[in-house]
């Protein structure tokens, strides 16, 4: 029961490995779970997914079906796509290309389309406002993982959705999912020292890093994103810091290969704030090609990650 897994958290972000990974199915399952338990829910998204092709043909329906009483955030111009009866609660002062983000309360069941702010501090402010309107739990549709980040300040818990739409190779999908899950659950590294405010990327990354690491080499603290380019610059050095610290797992914009090479050289990663990975959902069906064997995929992912794994298409998810 997916909903029970998120019971300890007030704010939960849903992140997907790719499109059609089953994120919306998981979201709808959580909405039904909240209805059954009488929990008042609020929904928002990090930004908004790109225009869907079926919008042009006019047959498109927003895929999220809410229960009366649910709060949701969306841009003013998207309200015409929402068919739940609603009450306008607030205008947030956050503007999107589709107008200002409004907070609404669904007065009936119905389809809604979400479009929330994309900056972490705006998400935090929105979440707090929704809680002020009585929401007991806030679910954040994280759009595509990595392109829209779900930082720990914004969401206490993360649900990671993965599925056959990620690619034809089930083994690779499972390994990459496990890698992302690992990034989301890196251990906390304790308080940070005062950073010198040194900026990289103005000259040769290797020289700059070597310069910065001279004489020390115990730990590297990275205030922004830690990228593949930085990883390869580190790997070219003879001596290498034992630890790399980042703000949180979403700042590691790193391929699995780079990560593993660094790990092989004895580098471990630490985060200042940790995400709580609540569950991984698996969707064996692909929007693009051959499905995976449901049982095999489920078992494979389960063997790679340390958190509960839920098959979004199985009936158990609904109750």
């Amino acid at each position: 029961m997916l909903f029970d897994l998120i019971a300890p958290y007030t704010t939960v972000c849903l992140a997907g490995m790719c499109k059609n990974a089953g994120k919306t199915t998981a979201l709808n399952a959580l909405i039904r779970g909240a209805r059954e338990r009488g929990v008042s829910l609020a929904l928002t998204s990090i930004g908004r997914d790109g225009e869907r092709e079926d919008l042009i043909t006019g047959t498109y329906k927003p895929p999220i079906y809410v229960t009366g009483g649910t709060l949701f955030a969306t841009a003013r111009e998207l309200l015409q796509r929402c068919d739940a009866t609603y009450e306008v609660l607030s205008l947030t002062g956050v503007y999107t290309p589709l107008g200002e983000v409004a907070i609404l309360r669904a007065l009936s069941d119905g389809f809604v389309e979400l479009a929330g702010p994309s900056m972490t501090e705006q998400i935090v402010a929105l979440t707090e406002e929704m809680e002020g309107f009585g929401a007991q739990k806030v679910l954040i549709d994280g759009a595509l993982f990595r392109r829209s980040l779900c930082a720990p300040e914004a969401a206490e818990g993360v649900i990671l959705a993965t599925g056959a739409s990620y690619g034809p190779n089930m083994q690779k999908t499972a390994e990459d999912t496990a890698f992302v899950a690992r990034l989301l659950t890196l251990p906390e590294g304790g308080p940070w020292p005062d950073l010198q405010g040194r900026r990289f990327g103005r000259g040769d990354l290797y020289d700059e890093l070597s310069d910065a690491l001279e004489g020390t080499g115990e730990a590297l603290y990275v205030a922004g994103a830690f990228t593949d380019a930085m990883a390869s610059a580190l790997l070219r050095r003879r001596t290498i810091p034992h630890q790399v610290h980042v703000e949180d797992g979403t700042r590691l914009l790193l391929s699995r290969e780079s990560y593993e090479k660094l790990a092989a050289r004895g580098v471990s990663f630490r985060v200042r704030r940790r995400n709580e990975l609540v569950a991984v959902t698996v969707n064996p069906f692909s929007a693009y090609g051959t499905p995976y064997d449901p049982a095999a995929f489920y078992e494979l992912v389960k063997s790679r990650v340390a958190v509960p794994v839920v098959n979004v298409l199985e009936k158990t998810i609904w109750n």
Binding site: R76, L79, Y86, V88, L91, A102
Partner: peptide
């Protein structure tokens, strides 16, 4: 006016 405008 629409509902959001009436709200404003």
């Amino acid at each position: 006016l629409d509902q959001v405008e009436l709200f404003e």
